[in-house]
């Protein structure tokens, strides 16, 4: 079946190709994987994979100064724990863990814990439907989707959800990026697993 052609490895390459090949500067790309959860046919979108690129303009990056020291300490603590979870060792001489955790890095990490049941949230609304493109802090802040409002708090100015065969591709940026069909077509090509 098409899903066997589509596995974790090619998914990461597709997300990377999409972001690195884009004209615009996207901060991250996420693939929300669809799965049917019960007999009623209710579907859920859950984490499939993600590619984090970060902000191009380091100067504009919302730095630690814009968050409380306590918030930054909390983020570093979480990162240390995640690191030991992954590396399997408690002590890790990893300087990266003490590096400032930016807002968009934190948003990307928090995204891994999220899922969308039966059409909820921007990804849910886009699934089996049409692309959703939200540009501008005000529109994100005024969105009915909590994830969009959260993204705006963490510095995003653009969020896009594009449906594909078995899930939804989401892109986010700290830049203002207006809707263009080129990106939507790229997603359809890169993430269309039917043929």
């Amino acid at each position: 079946p098409s899903t066997s052609l589509f596995n974790q490895e090619t998914l990461q390459q597709r997300l990377q190709t999409l972001i690195e090949g884009a004209r615009e500067s996207w901060t991250y790309a996420i693939y929300w994987q669809s799965s049917v959860v019960d007999f009623s046919g209710a579907s859920t979108l859950g984490w499939g994979d993600g590619y984090y690129k970060g902000e191009e303009d380091k100067g504009k990056r919302k730095t630690a100064s814009s968050q409380s020291a306590a918030e930054q300490e909390h983020r570093k603590k979480v990162l240390r724990e995640l690191n030991s979870l992954i590396s399997g060792s408690s002590a890790s001489a990893d300087d990266a863990v003490d590096e400032e955790v930016t807002d968009t890095e934190w948003f990307f990490l928090v995204s891994m814990t999220q899922s969308f049941v039966n059409g909820s949230g921007l990804p849910g609304q886009a699934f089996n439907s049409v692309p959703i493109w939200v540009t501008g802090k005000e529109r994100l802040a005024g969105s009915s989707c909590e994830r969009a409002r959260q993204g705006q708090v963490f510095g995003l100015q653009t969020m896009v959800c594009i449906p594909s065969a078995s899930g939804v591709v989401e892109l986010g940026s700290t830049e203002l990026i207006f809707q263009n069909s080129d990106l939507v077509n790229k997603v359809r090509v890169l993430f269309n697993f039917n043929n």
Binding site: W47, G48, Y52, N83, I86, D95, E105, M112, S115
Partner: peptide, 26 residues
């Protein structure tokens, strides 16, 4: 049902690794 946790772990490992490289490069 186990696919999502595995996907999260793989993505997390990749994110942390890339972050380490990014920090060292900067």
């Amino acid at each position: 049902a186990s696919a999502v946790p595995q996907a999260r772990k793989a993505s997390l490992a990749r994110f942390l690794e890339k972050r380490k490289e990014r920090v060292m490069n900067s």
